[in-house]
Design a protein around this nucleic acid. Structure first.
Lengths: 349, 349
DNA sequence: TTGAAAGCGCTAACAA
DNA sequence: TTGTTAGCGCTTTCAA
C-alpha cells in the first residue's frame, strides 16, 4: 500500500494525485513472498504455478491494486500480439467495424491499438504510430495512404484493408461485393416497377468506384442501360443533399441508389423539405446499414455490409497471416444483403 | 538493409511480409559508425550531438527506414508523456474534441492514446487500458464509470472530464456553461417573439441535467415559468424523433430546444415528414454545433461548445496538473455562444 | 513447482 | 562531443 496511505491535505486544499511510482511485479512478489517470475506466470495465466500460489498471488495483486505494465510486457514478449487499426472518428460505419474488431481480437489473444485519421492527421501518420508500437498487423478502415506508401507498409507487416478494393497485390482485402450489393438494390427497385433509377455516387470515397460500376452493370443487365444516370456525390450528408437539389431541379426519377447511408440521409432531408414524398414520389436505397439506417424515423432501405462479420473476417485474416496459415486468396468478399425498410415502395402508375 | 533484400517468391506466389526483427538503434549506430547513445540523442532531438553527426545519423536512419520503438521509449523514459483519452466512436462531438486533443497535445510534447467505449466495452475497461499504458493523465469524454471507481482512478493520476459536471471533487472538469447555453437559446427564441418553448431533454446523458436546469432557469427568468415543458429525450436521433411525434400529437409549441444536435436532427426529420415547417411553424435549437449542424441542408441553429477550445483547455489542464502548476479551481467553464442558422425564425402571428 | 538471470530497445546519468 | 553503463518492468529460458 506504499504511496497510497499518505495524503498530504495540509499543503494544498486540492487532493493531489500522486502518480508516484506504479506498482511492479517486484512489489507483488515481495508481498506474496515469491519470486517475480512466479508472479509473472500467474498474471499472464501461464502454466507453472500451483493453484494455491496462484490464488495467493492474485489476492495480493488485487489487494495492492497491481496492474501489469503493458509497455514492459510488449517489450519483453517475443510477440506483441498487437493489432493496429486506423479509422475515421466521425464515421458510423467505422465505429461499427471497430467495435467488431475489439470483439473478435480478444478471444484470439490479440490486443487492439487505435489510431485516428482526422482532418489534420493523415492516414500515413496514423499508420506510423501503429508501426512505432510494433503492431504485428494493420487493419485499415477508410481513407488510405498513397499506393506506393501502402506497398511499403505491406512489406513490413500484414495489412488488411476493409471495405474497398485495392490495386495493391501485397495487401489483403475484406469487403462486401459492391457489385452484388448494387445489383440487389437495382433488382429490388426494378421488381417494384421502377425504371428510371439513378445513382448518386461517392466520388473518390473508398469503394465508390466499385459501386458505380456495380450500378451500371446491374442496370445493363436489366436492360436499363439507356436510363443509366450518375450524379456526382460524396461520402457525407451534404453530398447527398446537393445531389438531391440538382435532381429535384432537373426531373424526378423513379428511384435513387446512393453511395452510402449518410448520402441518403441528406437526400431524404432535401426531399422532405421539397415536398417530395418517399417512397410515394421516389424510392431511395442507401448503403452500409449503419446505425442511422435503422433509426425509426428514417427506416432506410439499404444494403447491409454486416460490419460485425467484416470486422471478424479482417481480424481472422490478419491473424492467419501472422500465424503463417495457408491462404489462397488475397481478397475475402462477403455477400451483402438488402434490408428493405420504409424508403422504397411500388412505382407510381 | 538486413532482412529487406531477400525475397522468397519461389515458395509461394504471394509476397509474404517478413515482420522479421525490426531495426533498432543498434543497427543505425553500427551503420553510421557511432554509439547507440548518440543515435538516441539524435532521434529524440536532444542536445549533445554535432550538426554533422546529427545529419549523418538522420540520413542513415532514413535510408534504413528506422523507426524508434515506442514501447522501449515509453519504458525507458522517466516520463511517458502519454495522455489517455476515452471516447465513443460514433459520437461526432467526440470526434471533434479528439481531433482537438491531438492538435493541442503534440506541441506540448505529449502523445495521445485512444481507448474506445463501445456497446461491449465499458468506460471502466477503457480506462484500465489507459492505465496499463501508464498514461500520465486521462481525459474522459462521454459516459463515465461509476463515481466510486472514478474517484479511485483520480487517486492514481490527474483526470479531466470534458463536457459535463461531476460531483467528484478529485477530477478536473472542462466544459461549457450549460445553463448559459440554454439561456442563450431561450433568450434568442424569446426575442424572436416565441413564448411557448419546450425542451426535449437528454435523459441521463452526460450534461443533460445541467441543460435541463438551465432551460428551467432561463424560462423563469423570462417570466415564462408557466409554459415550462420538458419532454423525455436522449442523446440520439431517434430520441428526438420520438419526442417530435409525442409533441406533434399533443400540440405545436412555438419552439423547441433540444439536448443536442443529434436529437434535433431526429426532431427536424419528423417535422418535415409531418408537414410541420421549420422555422415557419416551429423553431428548433440544437446543442453542440457538431458537424451535422452546419450541413447546408440542415442549417441548424445551435449552441456552440467550441470543441477545439474545449479540447485544448482539457489538454492544458491535464498538463498543468502533471507539471504541478498552481491551479485554483477544479472546473474550467467556457462561455458557449449561439450560432444562428436557419431553423429559428420570428414567431407566427 | 519455483527461482535466478538474461534480455527486450530504449533513455539518461556519468565518464572520457 | 562522444561512449559506457545501468536501468525501465516485464517475459522466458534454464536450473534447482
Amino acid at each position: 500500500m506504499r504511496n497510497v496511505s499518505a495524503r498530504d491535505v495540509s499543503a494544498s486544499s486540492r487532493p493531489l494525485p500522486r502518480p508516484g511510482r506504479a506498482l511492479t511485479l517486484e512489489d507483488v512478489a515481495a508481498r506474496a513472498g515469491v519470486s517475480r517470475a512466479l508472479v509473472s506466470i500467474v498474471m499472464r495465466e501461464a502454466p507453472g504455478a500451483s493453484a494455491m500460489t496462484r490464488q495467493r498471488v492474485l489476492a495480493v495483486a488485487e489487494e495492492l491494486g497491481y496492474r501489469p505494465d503493458i509497455r514492459a510486457r510488449l517489450l519483453a514478449r517475443r510477440r506483441t500480439r498487437l493489432l493496429g487499426v486506423t479509422l475515421a472518428l466521425n464515421n458510423p460505419f467505422h465505429a461499427d467495424i471497430t467495435e467488431g474488431i475489439y470483439a473478435a481480437a480478444e478471444p484470439l489473444g490479440y490486443q487492439v491499438v487505435l489510431s485516428a485519421v482526422t482532418g489534420t492527421r493523415e492516414p500515413g501518420q496514423a499508420v506510423d504510430t501503429l508501426l512505432s508500437y510494433r503492431c504485428e498487423a494493420a487493419i485499415l478502415l477508410g481513407a488510405l495512404m498513397p499506393n506506393s506508401a501502402l506497398a511499403a507498409v505491406a512489406e513490413m507487416l500484414p495489412v488488411v484493408v476493409v471495405g474497398q478494393p485495392t490495386s495493391n497485390p501485397g495487401v489483403d482485402v475484406v469487403r462486401a461485393a459492391d457489385d452484388q450489393g448494387m445489383r440487389l438494390a437495382v433488382d429490388h427497385l426494378v421488381e417494384l416497377g421502377h425504371r428510371s433509377i439513378v445513382h448518386v455516387d461517392g466520388g473518390r470515397a473508398p469503394g465508390a468506384a466499385a459501386r458505380r460500376d456495380g450500378y451500371q452493370a446491374a442496370m445493363k443487365q436489366r436492360g436499363l442501360a439507356p436510363t443509366i444516370q450518375i450524379f456526382a456525390g460524396g461520402d457525407a450528408e451534404d453530398d447527398g443533399a446537393a445531389a438531391a437539389r440538382t435532381l429535384a431541379a432537373a426531373y424526378i426519377p423513379d428511384a435513387v441508389v446512393t453511395y452510402n447511408d449518410r448520402s441518403a440521409v441528406g437526400l431524404l432531408d432535401v426531399f422532405a423539405r421539397s415536398g417530395i414524398t418517399v417512397p410515394g414520389n421516389i424510392s431511395v436505397v442507401g448503403y452500409d446499414d449503419s446505425q442511422v439506417a435503422w433509426l425509426p424515423y428514417l427506416r432506410l432501405t439499404t444494403v447491409s455490409q454486416d460490419a460485425t462479420q467484416l470486422a471478424s473476417l479482417a481480424v481472422e485474416r490478419a491473424v492467419a497471416r501472422l500465424e503463417h496459415q495457408q491462404i489462397a486468396d488475397r481478397e475475402v468478399t462477403l455477400t451483402p444483403h438488402l434490408v428493405v425498410r420504409g424508403t422504397t415502395g411500388p412505382a407510381r402508375t
